[in-house]
Every structure is written in C-alpha cells, then in structure tokens.
Amino acid sequence: MFVKKYYEEFVRDDKRRTKGRTITETDIVLHAGQSGDFFPHHMDEEWCRTQPFKKRIAHGTLIFTVAIGLTAELVNEVSITYGYERLRFLAPVFIGDTIHVEVTIKEKKDHKKPGMGLVTELVEVFNQHRQLVMICEHLLLVNKNEI
C-alpha cells in the first residue's frame, strides 16, 4: 500500500507495533549462505552446547533484516531511509523465537536540504517473552508539505 505522510504529519512519541515473525533454522541457514557468516555460533549445534547459550543463535544481521522488514508495512512515497544509527544486539535470538518490533517517533528536525525534514524512529525488537533483543534508530528523510 502506498501513502503520502509528510514531515509535518509525524508526531513525536507516536508508536506502532508490527506483527510477529518466528525465526527458523531455514532463516539461519539461508542467511549464512547469503552473508558468508558460517561462524559456529550459528551453525554448529554440538559446539554451541559447550558455550554459555547452549544452543545456536541467530545472526544479529538476520534479526536486523527481519525486524526492519517487519516495519515495512507501507510505502511512504514522500520519504526515504537515510540510514540507521546506534544499532545494538542486547540478547540472543534462538531458533523458534518469535520477534516483533515496536517503533516510536523519537525526534524531528529540519534537514539542510530545503523542503526536507529528518525523522528519527526508535526501533525496538522484542522476543516472545517481551525481552528487548535489539535496538536501533532509523533515520527517515521526509518531504515537507509546503503548501
């Protein structure tokens, strides 16, 4: 679905929550193949049993990718991703965990490019136990509605 949500329409502290997504072994194997990250933390069940988490963990980059994908429910025709900042992986995600994302409008400010504003979204990823597993800030470059 396509929408037009201009800079002025973003409201600080507005929140939205995505649907859930369960992380599977297939996700991990495909991500390893695409990224080249075959570290034993993700691929070697026997080795992982000797480590603190006792089982395989999902790649942080996989969780980031899935989480951001969950937030892409609408296409805003007047904004574009400007980047991500302050990315942190706070807790492991295991095969069978279900994650969802909560997005909060954190900040708005003018951008140096005329007619544009910068919107910062706080992106928080939780597992099924409401444990925060990942956090970052998503920067959006958004057109102003200068009528």
Rank of each mutant, 00 (worst) to 15 (best):
H100T: 11
F89G: 03
A67I: 02
K5M: 12
H111F: 04
E73D: 13
L139I: 07
D110K: 01
A58F: 04
G69M: 06
E124F: 00
F94D: 02
F38H: 11
F10A: 10
V29Q: 02
G33V: 04
F10N: 13
A91Q: 05
D44H: 04
P114C: 03
R12A: 10
H59S: 07
K55S: 04
Y6H: 14
E102N: 06
I147V: 12
D44T: 00
T98E: 14
K108C: 08
R21F: 11
E9S: 11
H59Y: 12
N143C: 09
V66H: 11
E25H: 01
L62K: 02
E146S: 07
G117V: 01
T24Y: 05
K108G: 12
V103Y: 11
L87K: 10
A32V: 04
H100W: 14
M43T: 08
R88L: 05
H42D: 01
E124A: 03
H111W: 01
V3M: 14
Y7G: 08
T22K: 11
K5C: 07
R17P: 07
K55M: 05
V93C: 06
Y84H: 13
G60N: 11
P40H: 10
F39I: 00
E9I: 00
I57K: 08
M1I: 04
D97T: 01
F39D: 14
G96F: 02
W47F: 09
T26G: 06
V125H: 12
W47V: 00
R130C: 03
F38T: 05
